Simulated scan of single mutants.
Amino acid sequence: MKIKEIIVVEGKDDTVKVKLAVDADTIETRGSAVNDSVIDQIRHAQATRGVIILTDPDYPGQRIRSLIADKVPGCRHAFLPKSEAIEKHGRGVGIEYASVESIRKALRDAQYMDKEAAEQITKEDLVAAGLIGGPDSKTRREAVGQKLKIGYVNGKQLHKRLIMFQITREQFAEALMEVLEEEQS
């Protein structure tokens, strides 16, 4: 599978794993302190070929993703579920631990974010759906995030991500229904 866009990853091990999965070029942020030189490279890549951001499904990865998205608008975002990016002994989380197929799927499902999208789903909807403030909220958020291909986020970030990805009430309800049905079985 050849990818035209340049894929932004965190480090060398991520690049190695991505190149096993797809034929693509990468830019490495080399950690969470993304410097201006790297941002300039990403801006140039976005202007010439497009960019897909594929960071680790953890707090530092989310921080890097947000920083890049703020400074380089128009990037696509690929998400790996945390469960598919855990080192086999459970000591680490990262792209480098994911399977080749998981990486391919995440890249195929990459989406654009739109911070200016009209609000469709309210925070009250998220509370009513048991995605915020309930005993199983974290598990349910993770499952809904996978269904909607927006990645795992905490309660505060879920609302923002639903808006940025322009998730409609219908898409949200469908994903939630699937998750609730899976919980029942």
Rank of each mutant, 00 (worst) to 15 (best):
E182R: 12
A69W: 02
K71Y: 02
T55W: 01
E10M: 10
R169W: 06
I39L: 03
A78Q: 00
G133A: 01
L54D: 01
A128R: 13
V51E: 01
V22Q: 04
D109W: 10
T139F: 04
I42P: 00
N35Q: 04
S66V: 05
G133E: 02
R63S: 08
S32W: 11
I121R: 09
K147P: 00
V8K: 04
E142N: 05
K12A: 13
V38P: 01
I163W: 09
K138G: 02
H77G: 08
E28L: 07
Y59Q: 09
I64K: 05
A33N: 14
S102E: 04
Y152W: 11
T15C: 03
G134C: 11
K149C: 12
N154F: 02
D56M: 10
A118Q: 14
K12P: 11
L54Y: 01
Y97K: 11
R108W: 08
G155M: 14
I3C: 07
K147E: 14
C75N: 05
D13M: 12
E5G: 02
I167A: 09
E178S: 06
Q111S: 13
M177W: 11
E178D: 11
Q62N: 14
F79G: 06
V38C: 03
G151R: 04
K123R: 15
L67S: 12
Q184E: 15
L180F: 07
L126Y: 08
R91L: 15
D36H: 06
A117M: 10
I163A: 14
L158Y: 02
R65L: 08
D13W: 08
E101F: 04
H77L: 10
C75M: 05
L126N: 09
K138Y: 02
I86H: 02
Q120R: 14
I27K: 08
D136C: 13
G130I: 10
K156N: 11
E181R: 13
G134M: 11
F172D: 00
D25K: 15
I86P: 01
R141Q: 07
D40L: 01
T15D: 03
E5W: 00
L67V: 06
K147V: 09
Q184N: 15
I68G: 01
Q46I: 05
T139H: 02
A118W: 11
H44Q: 12
T48V: 04
K88S: 15
E28D: 12
L67T: 08
A128G: 10
D114V: 14
R161S: 12
S99M: 08
L67P: 03
H44V: 06
K123A: 14
V16Y: 08
C75L: 04
A129Q: 12
I86T: 11
E178H: 05
G11S: 06
M113V: 11
L54S: 00
A78C: 01
V153T: 15
E116L: 14
L54E: 01
E87P: 05
Q46V: 03
I42Q: 00
E5Y: 02
V93D: 02
L107G: 03
K115V: 13
V72A: 04
E182T: 07
G133V: 03
V18S: 06
R104A: 00
G94W: 00
V22T: 06
P60Q: 07
L107A: 05
P73W: 03
D56N: 09
R91P: 09
I7W: 04
I167V: 15
G133R: 00
D14R: 07
